[in-house]
Design a binder for these strands. Structure first.
Lengths: 273, 273
DNA sequence: CTAATAGTGTCTATTAGACAGTATGTT
DNA sequence: AACATACTGTCTAATAGACACTATTAG
């Protein structure tokens, strides 16, 4: 059949010619928490954490999953994570970045569902009391040995871990195929999303300023360095860290006090108006 | 309603509870071409090129678009670009990388269609005669001034350009919102996909070995340097380039000849089996 | 010879890594 | 005083940028 114009074509178009599917979005929300250290001066240490939701319906009832939901038929894809984030944390104007779209045929037992994952970075201090009741923050510990990554999750009440094997895809880049080899507690393929998010964050923290999305307005260089350290999973040398970070922050005349050791200057992010 | 088990839940599940949509995939296929230089010694120069298809049906009839198509209801998302690539170029085992998923409500005038874009890197020398008849290679020229990118496309018969404005999204990273400000010849939002692909490639060529996916088995360092130069859009200094690339290649005892100037050694990629 | 690209040597400026040291609060 | 973290000085090694030079083919 021949059409004379685009309008004519669209009028005759049957949208059900191809079988259709559903689209969801899942968000890995990163933040940092303070944890008491067991030294005699009760200092605190930064921990790296994500928000998980306990499922109370099938499928994967009672397992944990990332916050997320269906993308509305009249909703732009990128508006969906904004909506989810608002519902889940009551926060707006949050750093959001699309990660990856997962589309294996059987990734959801209900039907064919595609999921586009996002990562969000938030400063927990901006978090008002309201966080939805099934959600909780899990501290993360990451361990990698022989291309097997073990991620330990702990929300204070429950703790568990999962393991993913990284298989090099090709010799020209360091891209990996991720294969879940142990996972009792996370729904869907969310273990994969979590690892992808961690790796993206680890990578980007080195050459961008995204880390400041997780920091309060005023912070010490020690705190900032700790955040880099927990995300990168390694210790950094003070002078080198300060040399690099110097260009990105501004020293204020405010100082900490009552910390059990020498007070430090508070800094702000330079580009934050 | 309460279910006793996951099986029971799935049996009762109605997949049409949410309105459904369609998923397509678009692929930006990058390669390099040789172009005659108008000097009296007929030397050749590398050009950077992509494959575009002229649409012969509505919507966007007679405009150019990226190769692509619908993802089958029983096809894994990542298998779709492999299939498209096989159809379009008859090539298999190609470097493919997911770029971004586009999901604005009105990005397709027919209906709600989500599109996951991929980029592919190929070595044109592996290309046998068969390339589908509506497809052609366009050489690319990229120009950036005041955050407005102009991309010039030329397939030997037709040439045109499009302009995209880059608007900084936030201060903490160099992520941009892309806005098409001039585009007469490309269908859908494919101008955005092309720019996203170029920027991803530009970025990755600096810290990975992906460029070798576009190179033949044997190449000279001069050719390789030219490929880096056309992709990065700038000249590189010979000694610095050689210092870096030395670690990635192996010198063979083969040499070029008949080039109108001093012959050069041929190299192979080190990690290629 | 000249045009053209191939390939090398070396100086310099910048940056990253390492370590040792000093400073200043709380308990 | 002891502890804990804040902060700085400086040496060294590694790397990137720049430029000048030599080498070797075809025409």
């Amino acid at each position: 059949m021949e059409y004379k114009s685009e309008e004519e074509f669209l009028k005759a178009y049957n949208p059900n010619e191809f079988e259709r599917l559903s689209l969801t979005t899942d968000i890995i929300i990163f933040s940092v928490s303070d944890e008491q250290v067991a030294n005699y001066r009760k200092t605190s240490k930064k921990r790296f954490s994500i928000l998980l939701v306990k499922r109370n319906t099938y499928p994967f009832k009672d397992k944990y999953c990332l916050p997320g939901g269906f993308v509305g038929i009249n909703e732009n894809l990128e508006d969906a994570p904004i909506r989810v984030l608002k519902n889940e944390t009551n926060l707006q104007n949050i750093y959001l970045e699309q990660l990856y779209t997962y589309g294996d045929v059987h990734r959801d037992p209900r039907m064919r569902i595609i999921s586009t994952s996002y990562m969000a970075l938030i400063d927990k201090n901006k978090l008002n009391e309201k966080i939805s009741k099934d959600a909780s923050w899990f501290n993360l510990d990451i361990e990698e040995k022989n291309n097997i990554v073990t991620i330990y999750l702990d929300n204070g009440k429950e703790h568990f871990s999962f393991k993913i094997k990284k298989i090099l895809k090709e010799l020209t880049t360091d891209r990996y195929k991720y294969e879940i080899i142990e996972n009792e507690h996370l729904a869907f393929d969310h273990a994969l999303v979590i690892l992808a998010g961690i790796e993206r964050l680890k990578n980007k923290i080195e050459y961008t300023d995204i880390v400041f999305n997780m920091m309060p307005k005023y912070f010490t260089l020690g705190e900032l360095q700790q955040v880099y350290e927990v995300i990168l999973g390694k210790k950094l040398l003070d002078p080198a860290f300060r040399r690099i970070i110097e260009k990105k922050v501004l020293k204020t005349d405010k100082m900490t006090s009552g910390e059990g050791h020498r007070p430090s200057y508070l800094y702000i992010y330079k580009n934050k108006e």
